[in-house]
Design a protein around this nucleic acid. Sequence first.
DNA 1: CGCACGGTTGACACGACTCAATTGCTGTGG
DNA 2: CCACAGCAATTGAGTCGTGTCAACCGTGCG
Lengths: 273, 273
Amino acid sequence: MQTGFAFTRFADRLTSVAELSSDDLDLLARMPSAIRHFSSHDEIRRRGEHASECCLVLQGYTCWKDADHSAGQITSVHVPGDIPDLYTTLSPRVDARLCALGPAVVAFVPHAFFRELSAQSERMAHALSLLALADIACLRNWLVILGSCESLTRAAHLICEITVRLRVVGLARDDRFPSPFTQSDLAAICGISPVHANRTIQDLRRKGLLHWQSRMITIADWPALVRLAGFKSDYLRLRQPVLQQDPLLPEPRTPDGLEMSSSTLAPATAAPL
Amino acid sequence: MQTGFAFTRFADRLTSVAELSSDDLDLLARMPSAIRHFSSHDEIRRRGEHASECCLVLQGYTCWKDADHSAGQITSVHVPGDIPDLYTTLSPRVDARLCALGPAVVAFVPHAFFRELSAQSERMAHALSLLALADIACLRNWLVILGSCESLTRAAHLICEITVRLRVVGLARDDRFPSPFTQSDLAAICGISPVHANRTIQDLRRKGLLHWQSRMITIADWPALVRLAGFKSDYLRLRQPVLQQDPLLPEPRTPDGLEMSSSTLAPATAAPL
DNA sequence: CGCACGGTTGACACGACTCAATTGCTGTGG
DNA sequence: CCACAGCAATTGAGTCGTGTCAACCGTGCG
């Protein structure tokens, strides 16, 4: 357990929904964390477990998976900076499986830290609430997608959402990002069969919207993709919307949150443990 | 604005997820509320509105509707005792439309009341959190349903869920409850077309699982319905699960939360304003 | 080398959507 | 009281999207 360096992605994520003072950022910088590495489809949190710390995604992707078998529906996807189980600070029982979508690095942060954070800064407590609300809004939006869109739109929307959420934390700045998940994973997210997921992706490729090769996605035509998906980013509750065409983001930074070879997954810049 | 009588359904709902002390119940009894009546498909909260009070459903049903047009996907349904917009205490902006599904009675309770409640009782604050978590679990569960079940299962699951949630607040005790919503409403919930919703309901009827006539649903074969839906009530996070076969609920009470003729909607027992 | 796994393809079946028309019910006004 | 309008429910026919089954290919790993 050590302090520091893991907080920066999370700070980016927090400032994307709320304004933080420099005092708040100082508080964040004292975040204690234990780093762990997972390989694809590893189980990070088991259903029924009682958590005493939260999972902060540092690199790669994670997801909540409903059923125990591999084909189970995925109810949400998380990118670096996200805390999938922030709610366990309120009630420690985990009611689904948290899995790694591709190799992932996760920081375990004690519940106590978030409690102290909320106690010490009213503004920070509010920011954490806003994070939770954004997650809910995301869920509702996916309900709409699954309930009213066909597979092509679903897949396009997923790509759009992931792209924007990556940009928020300073990743995917060149419209390229790793996609270590399988087509079956995408199927489980979009609620379609693996076979159909394949054809859907091919469709996106054939339409010239994106390239998906060697575990890497490149957006080829962002405006067209957004149009096809009917993507409006307002549901993400971002303070300054990540614009469609040009990213308009804060200071550039070396993208290290997703850079990893598919299996080696080199320990991040100064990896502990 | 007056005090009293509106809190009982809400107290039932709260005690279904958390244990409350008699002091907590006393606090609840001081709940101030302004009662309003709505007719079917009325808009209770507008998208973009800033709320300063919460909506407590007293009678009938409400729902969050995504799009502005009538066919928009419905992302959640609420029964008496529910507070659809409890989250506005954290961030007042409403990001969807809250609509009445059939005639409904709603109590407007100031945000301040819930803030005081949380401040005065740790246990109550926790109970409110659990309510919010239950709502999220409900959303996730619907994501799974929409992503992996066909229309018959979706409809069956909806009926199961509504039945259990009604029982929790002392309604639908005889496996009968009003269904003032239209088949198009059901379609918007289940993510299917209105025409197909009709055929699906007929299918449920033909299989002898339920009767749906004159705006009233009667469960004809609860075990079979549960089996068809694959319904497990654990995601509702109830302290004592409402069992499948025999209701096993606290003291019986006159069911007045849903009793209303389709259009007249007589002002409830001692309606104010 | 061969096995396992992810990706790809084709054929076929079935669930669901759309269009369009009809029936039934309920409330309204002549 | 009846005629009518309007809405919800119902039905049929045809089309389209998606699931399933099965086979095949390529790659990476033991």
